[in-house]
């Protein structure tokens, strides 16, 4: 070692670097979650965690499993494309426990006008009313059945 008289401090420095590299590798192995990089540059388990969120709207299939009679009435009416929970609200709790959790009573004065009160931008062929001229305070279900709302006496409008 005639050319590097003071090689010893270089070796010490190399040892420090080597130790640093080992610490980095070990710390990385401990700290990075096992599923990181499973599908890409993110924690793979996050997908399953997000998928585990509880459902609040049961879906109309769950409703129709018990309420087949209502589904039949609805399938022939104008409201065929309106799913149950669009009016009745989120009822997965009722689907899980049909006797324990009862759906709340509905107010047609609020529900019907949400869609049918004229707001100036609905499509032209959508049935729209001005509630105070149309019924003058008489509640909607006096004339219309919510599950099949068309009045089938006179001429269709």
């Amino acid at each position: 070692m005639s050319r590097f008289k003071d090689a010893e401090h270089l070796l010490r420095l190399a040892a420090v670097f080597a130790l640093g590299a080992v610490v980095l590798v070990v710390a990385r192995a401990i700290l990075v979650p096992k599923s990181f990089g499973e599908y890409g540059h993110y924690r793979g388990n996050a997908i399953a965690e997000i998928a585990a969120q509880p459902v609040k709207f049961a879906g109309h299939q769950a409703c129709e499993a018990c309420h087949a009679d209502v589904a039949t009435v609805k399938s022939k009416g104008m409201h065929v494309s309106v799913n149950c929970e669009a009016c009745h609200g989120a009822l997965a709790s009722h689907a899980d426990d049909p006797t324990g959790v009862q759906p709340p009573k509905l107010d047609t004065a609020v529900l019907c006008v949400r869609c049918h009160e004229v707001n100036g931008a609905q499509p032209k062929d959508f049935p729209q009313i001005v509630a105070k001229d149309h019924s003058a305070g008489v509640s909607c279900e006096t004339c219309h059945q919510p599950h099949s709302p068309l009045i089938e006496t006179g001429a269709k409008q």
Partner: peptide, 10 residues
């Protein structure tokens, strides 16, 4: 299931 917005779109 479908999404909550699709399920409730009348």
């Amino acid at each position: 299931l479908t999404t909550a917005c699709c399920e409730n779109c009348p």
